[in-house]
Design a protein around this nucleic acid. Structure first.
Lengths: 224, 224
DNA sequence: AAAATAGTGTCTGTCAGACAGTATGGA
DNA sequence: TCCATACTGTCTGACAGACACTATTTT
């Protein structure tokens, strides 16, 4: 039995954040149907009531269908709903945000990776959604290990610090950062694995990987 | 033009949290129609696409219609959506949570105020929604002025500390608490207004009210 | 040895927790 | 004066920021 009320459209939109050449960026796909056909926008899709068990399932399906990617971190961001955000009618978009290690643009399939700073205006209210996703990442990064999901398999502590600095937009003290990371223990050194500096000269750096704890909130704010 | 896909039901549910005799409690209303007719549940309602401008408008309308109350603080909590949460079909519930000063039960209109600890099982997935709202309040309270929205017009600093302690479920040091509150400055003393101790004996306490800043995040975690 | 990069040790200012002390009222 | 409650001052341990120092590699 359905309700007597006309129901809004129900969609899920994804904000896929990644680090492209060390710069925080978002994955966009070219729309293959109206409205805004041919424009770059967040990957999204309708909830399929026959197919999807719940909203998280919709998010995973959309991610798979639109990009073929799998995100190590996927979190519900916020729900945008109103009369004027989509010309097709009153619509609800449940936005999810995901973090991925560096992913390549794929022009064949209409996928572009754009820096989040200086992003052009996007269709619908997608600009606002991206803004909110970035704000959430920045906010959580100052007191959690979230940014590790932007790292590749193996990385050095200086790599990790650099990612934190990029995400937070401010320099961090080397000693304090390492003290904190060591104390929290969500990454672990890989025994015997090192990486030589690019110039050749200099002490090789210990390589790290994600530990068992993975996502962790720090007890206190980690920095300013 | 509508979508080709069948759309899920779209509802908004409200978690109204309040302090009843100093105990964190939630407002529930008796359902006046199936499913679960006659049972206590979160006040909620369908999105009315003709009437409501956006989701926040739906939330405010439902609050008004179901309780006649106005909430000084209303925030989107999380969106629950899936096939089995409502027997009427695939449904989406955008949950909002609100904070209110002490409100009275209203059996005439089917409204009850129940303590959040030891709550009986609620219809749909409402128990989970309440849980999440309480978790959000607890989480934010340790580093923000959120609990002030649970306070009446006038209150003492000891009242405020007591509310923080109730919400966080742990005692706080008097000196540290006052230092922090004073530094943050989201409440202000009301000149010349004091409240005498209940027993009659003892120094009267300065009365405070919300200041201009109201909602504020602290720089650091306020306590363990 | 020099240079370059990785990693550690230590000082210090800040601040929350603890708690003792002062202030102000009624009985 | 005593008691009860409200409020304040100060000591201290923990810790983040700063930064100098040691370590390890290639040239």
């Amino acid at each position: 039995m359905k309700s007597d009320y006309p129901t809004p459209l129900a969609t899920v939109d994804l904000v896929l954040l990644t680090l492209r050449d060390g710069v925080l960026s978002v994955a966009l796909v070219r729309r293959d149907r109206p409205p805004f056909e041919g424009r770059l926008a967040l990957p999204g899709g309708f909830v399929h009531v026959e197919e999807d068990e719940d909203l998280a399932a919709t998010a995973r399906r959309v991610l798979r269908e639109k990009t073929g990617l799998v995100a190590p971190y996927l979190e519900q961001l916020y729900t945008f709903g109103g009369r004027n955000r989509d010309e097709r009618g009153w619509s609800i978009s449940v936005a999810y945000f995901a973090l991925l290690p560096d992913i390549a643009p794929d022009p064949e399939n209409g996928r572009a990776i754009l820096e989040v700073d200086g992003l052009p205006h996007l269709p619908f209210d997608h600009s606002r959604i991206v803004e909110q996703a970035v704000a959430r990442l920045r906010g959580k990064s100052s007191y959690s290990s979230l940014p590790v999901y932007l790292m590749p398999e193996r990385f050095t502590l200086d790599d990790l610090q650099s990612v934190y600095e990029r995400v937070l937009g401010q320099p961090l003290d080397r000693g304090s950062f390492r003290r904190q990371i060591d104390f929290q223990g969500f990454v672990e050194p890989v025994p015997g694995e090192f990486r030589r500096p690019e110039g050749g000269r200099g002490r090789p750096a210990q390589l790290y990987r994600l530990g068992a704890k993975r996502l962790k909130e720090f007890g206190r704010r980690m920095l300013a």
